[in-house]
Amino acid sequence: MTVTASSAPTVSRWGRRLRWATAAATLAGIDLALKARAQTALDGSPIEAGPVDLRLAFNPGAAFSIAADAPSWVMLTLTTLITTAIAVGGWVVAPRANLLTRLGLAALLGGAAANVIDRAPDGLVTDYLHTGWWPTFNLADTFIVLGVIALIITTLIGNSDEREQLSPDHHTDNRD
Protein backbone atom coordinates (compact mmCIF):
# COMPACT_ATOMS: atom_id res chain seq x y z
CA MET A 1 0.00 0.00 0.00
CA THR A 2 1.34 3.40 -0.99
CA VAL A 3 0.69 6.42 1.19
CA THR A 4 0.25 9.62 -0.76
CA ALA A 5 0.62 13.13 0.58
CA SER A 6 -3.14 13.57 0.60
CA SER A 7 -3.76 10.39 2.61
CA ALA A 8 -0.91 10.92 5.09
CA PRO A 9 -2.03 12.07 8.52
CA THR A 10 -1.66 15.80 9.05
CA VAL A 11 -0.77 17.58 12.24
CA SER A 12 -3.02 20.44 13.27
CA ARG A 13 -1.80 23.97 13.86
CA TRP A 14 -1.96 23.44 17.61
CA GLY A 15 -0.13 20.14 17.24
CA ARG A 16 2.74 21.79 15.35
CA ARG A 17 2.89 24.56 17.92
CA LEU A 18 2.88 22.07 20.78
CA ARG A 19 5.63 19.98 19.20
CA TRP A 20 7.70 23.09 18.53
CA ALA A 21 7.27 24.41 22.09
CA THR A 22 8.01 20.97 23.58
CA ALA A 23 11.22 20.71 21.54
CA ALA A 24 12.32 24.17 22.73
CA ALA A 25 11.52 23.33 26.36
CA THR A 26 13.37 20.01 26.10
CA LEU A 27 16.50 21.67 24.70
CA ALA A 28 16.39 24.33 27.43
CA GLY A 29 15.99 21.63 30.08
CA ILE A 30 18.96 19.66 28.76
CA ASP A 31 21.17 22.74 28.85
CA LEU A 32 20.02 23.80 32.32
CA ALA A 33 20.67 20.29 33.67
CA LEU A 34 24.18 20.31 32.18
CA LYS A 35 24.85 23.76 33.63
CA ALA A 36 23.81 22.55 37.09
CA ARG A 37 26.04 19.49 36.75
CA ALA A 38 28.95 21.62 35.51
CA GLN A 39 28.67 23.90 38.54
CA THR A 40 29.09 20.96 40.92
CA ALA A 41 31.46 18.73 38.94
CA LEU A 42 33.79 21.34 37.45
CA ASP A 43 34.15 23.82 40.31
CA GLY A 44 37.92 24.16 40.59
CA SER A 45 38.63 20.98 38.65
CA PRO A 46 38.48 21.28 34.85
CA ILE A 47 38.45 18.13 32.75
CA GLU A 48 40.67 17.85 29.69
CA ALA A 49 38.66 15.94 27.11
CA GLY A 50 40.45 16.54 23.82
CA PRO A 51 39.35 19.19 21.39
CA VAL A 52 36.73 20.47 23.85
CA ASP A 53 37.64 20.63 27.54
CA LEU A 54 35.18 21.04 30.37
CA ARG A 55 35.99 24.19 32.34
CA LEU A 56 33.62 26.22 34.49
CA ALA A 57 33.27 29.91 33.66
CA PHE A 58 30.62 32.59 34.16
CA ASN A 59 29.71 35.29 31.64
CA PRO A 60 27.95 38.49 32.75
CA GLY A 61 27.65 39.72 29.16
CA ALA A 62 26.18 38.53 25.92
CA ALA A 63 28.03 36.48 23.29
CA PHE A 64 31.81 36.90 23.50
CA SER A 65 31.28 38.83 26.77
CA ILE A 66 29.85 41.81 24.87
CA ALA A 67 28.47 44.34 27.35
CA ALA A 68 29.97 42.44 30.29
CA ASP A 69 30.26 45.73 32.17
CA ALA A 70 26.57 46.58 31.74
CA PRO A 71 24.34 46.29 34.82
CA SER A 72 22.98 42.75 35.14
CA TRP A 73 19.38 43.98 35.00
CA VAL A 74 20.07 45.53 31.58
CA MET A 75 21.43 42.25 30.19
CA LEU A 76 18.55 40.29 31.73
CA THR A 77 15.98 42.72 30.32
CA LEU A 78 17.48 42.72 26.82
CA THR A 79 17.90 38.96 26.62
CA THR A 80 14.38 38.43 27.99
CA LEU A 81 12.91 40.78 25.37
CA ILE A 82 14.81 39.04 22.57
CA THR A 83 13.77 35.60 23.85
CA THR A 84 10.14 36.74 24.09
CA ALA A 85 10.27 37.99 20.50
CA ILE A 86 11.66 34.62 19.37
CA ALA A 87 8.88 32.82 21.27
CA VAL A 88 6.13 34.98 19.76
CA GLY A 89 7.60 34.72 16.26
CA GLY A 90 7.98 30.96 16.57
CA TRP A 91 4.42 30.58 17.85
CA VAL A 92 3.11 32.48 14.82
CA VAL A 93 5.35 30.74 12.26
CA ALA A 94 5.30 27.14 13.59
CA PRO A 95 1.90 26.08 12.18
CA ARG A 96 2.89 26.76 8.58
CA ALA A 97 6.66 26.24 8.69
CA ASN A 98 8.53 23.20 7.45
CA LEU A 99 10.28 20.84 9.84
CA LEU A 100 13.74 22.41 9.48
CA THR A 101 12.34 25.87 10.22
CA ARG A 102 10.50 24.58 13.30
CA LEU A 103 13.65 22.78 14.51
CA GLY A 104 15.74 25.91 13.96
CA LEU A 105 13.25 28.05 15.86
CA ALA A 106 13.04 25.46 18.66
CA ALA A 107 16.84 25.36 18.98
CA LEU A 108 17.03 29.15 18.96
CA LEU A 109 14.28 29.52 21.58
CA GLY A 110 15.54 26.64 23.73
CA GLY A 111 19.06 28.06 23.85
CA ALA A 112 17.93 31.63 24.45
CA ALA A 113 15.44 30.61 27.17
CA ALA A 114 18.03 28.46 28.95
CA ASN A 115 20.50 31.34 29.03
CA VAL A 116 17.84 33.76 30.33
CA ILE A 117 16.77 31.32 33.04
CA ASP A 118 20.41 30.75 34.00
CA ARG A 119 21.10 34.52 34.07
CA ALA A 120 18.03 35.45 36.15
CA PRO A 121 19.27 34.63 39.70
CA ASP A 122 22.69 36.31 39.64
CA GLY A 123 23.18 38.01 36.25
CA LEU A 124 25.64 35.38 35.04
CA VAL A 125 25.42 32.68 32.39
CA THR A 126 27.23 29.43 33.17
CA ASP A 127 29.70 28.31 30.51
CA TYR A 128 31.53 24.98 30.54
CA LEU A 129 32.77 24.06 27.04
CA HIS A 130 36.31 25.30 26.38
CA THR A 131 38.35 24.88 23.20
CA GLY A 132 41.34 27.09 23.96
CA TRP A 133 40.91 28.97 20.68
CA TRP A 134 37.30 30.11 21.19
CA PRO A 135 35.64 31.76 24.19
CA THR A 136 34.18 29.29 26.69
CA PHE A 137 30.53 28.57 25.87
CA ASN A 138 27.65 26.25 26.76
CA LEU A 139 25.23 23.93 25.01
CA ALA A 140 22.58 26.66 24.83
CA ASP A 141 24.99 28.76 22.76
CA THR A 142 25.44 25.78 20.44
CA PHE A 143 21.65 25.43 20.12
CA ILE A 144 21.38 29.12 19.21
CA VAL A 145 24.08 28.87 16.52
CA LEU A 146 22.60 25.68 15.05
CA GLY A 147 19.12 27.26 15.09
CA VAL A 148 20.36 30.31 13.20
CA ILE A 149 22.14 28.08 10.66
CA ALA A 150 18.94 26.07 10.13
CA LEU A 151 16.95 29.27 9.60
CA ILE A 152 19.50 30.59 7.12
CA ILE A 153 19.33 27.30 5.19
CA THR A 154 15.52 27.36 5.08
CA THR A 155 15.62 30.98 3.95
CA LEU A 156 18.02 30.11 1.14
CA ILE A 157 16.21 26.98 -0.05
CA GLY A 158 12.70 28.18 0.72
CA ASN A 159 9.92 26.67 2.76
CA SER A 160 8.21 23.83 0.86
CA ASP A 161 5.07 24.14 3.02
CA GLU A 162 4.74 27.81 2.05
CA ARG A 163 5.29 26.99 -1.65
CA GLU A 164 2.58 24.34 -1.38
CA GLN A 165 0.17 26.84 0.19
CA LEU A 166 0.80 29.24 -2.69
CA SER A 167 0.27 26.53 -5.31
CA PRO A 168 -2.97 26.83 -7.33
CA ASP A 169 -3.52 23.09 -6.84
CA HIS A 170 -3.39 23.37 -3.04
CA HIS A 171 -6.63 22.75 -1.20
CA THR A 172 -6.88 24.56 2.11
CA ASP A 173 -7.27 22.53 5.26
CA ASN A 174 -9.08 24.51 7.94
CA ARG A 175 -8.51 22.05 10.79
CA ASP A 176 -7.11 23.60 13.95
Score class of each variant (00 low, 15 high):
L124S: 05
L103K: 00
N159L: 02
F137T: 08
L108S: 01
A38E: 03
R175K: 14
D53I: 01
A23H: 09
R37N: 04
T79D: 10
G147Y: 11
R119E: 06
R17C: 13
A24K: 07
D127M: 05
R163L: 12
H170N: 14
A57G: 15
A49N: 11
G110M: 01
A120S: 11
P135K: 10
D173M: 03
L156C: 10
V3M: 13
A21N: 07
I82C: 12
G147P: 06
L78S: 01
A94I: 01
P135M: 03
P46N: 11
A24W: 09
A49D: 08
R13N: 12
L34A: 10
L166I: 01
G110E: 04
L151N: 05
T136D: 02
L139D: 07
L105R: 05
G61M: 11
A150K: 06
P46Q: 12
N59Y: 12
A107R: 00
F58K: 10
D53S: 12
A36V: 03
A94K: 00
G132Q: 10
F143E: 11
S72Y: 04
E48K: 03
I152K: 07
V52M: 00
W133D: 02
L78G: 08
P121H: 08
G89T: 03
A114D: 05
L27T: 03
N115C: 02
N115Y: 04
R119W: 06
A36R: 13
S167Y: 09
L32M: 07
I149C: 14
I157K: 12
V148L: 12
M75N: 03
L103S: 06
L139V: 08
L34E: 04
A63E: 07
N159E: 14
L18I: 08
G158Y: 08
F143A: 13
S167V: 05
H170S: 14
D141Q: 11
V74E: 07
R17Y: 07
R19K: 11
T101D: 04
L27C: 04
T77R: 09
E162W: 08
R16C: 11
L139W: 06
L32F: 09
K35D: 01
L78H: 09
V125Y: 09
M1T: 15
E162R: 15
L54T: 00
P51M: 14
L103Y: 04
V148W: 12
L166R: 14
A62T: 05
R19F: 13
I157D: 00
T4W: 11
D169Q: 13
L129K: 12
T10M: 05
R96G: 13
D53N: 13
A97G: 10
V52I: 13
R17K: 10
D161N: 15
I149W: 07
S72E: 09
A114W: 02
A8C: 09
W91Q: 03
R13K: 10
T154E: 12
I149R: 10
A112W: 01
T126K: 06
P60D: 07
V3T: 15
A87H: 05
D176N: 12
L166W: 13
V125H: 07
A120G: 02
V11G: 01
R17I: 13
A5L: 15
A87C: 09
L42I: 06
A113N: 01
M1D: 11
A94P: 06
T131Y: 05
L109D: 00
W133Q: 05
W20Y: 15
W20K: 00
A63P: 08
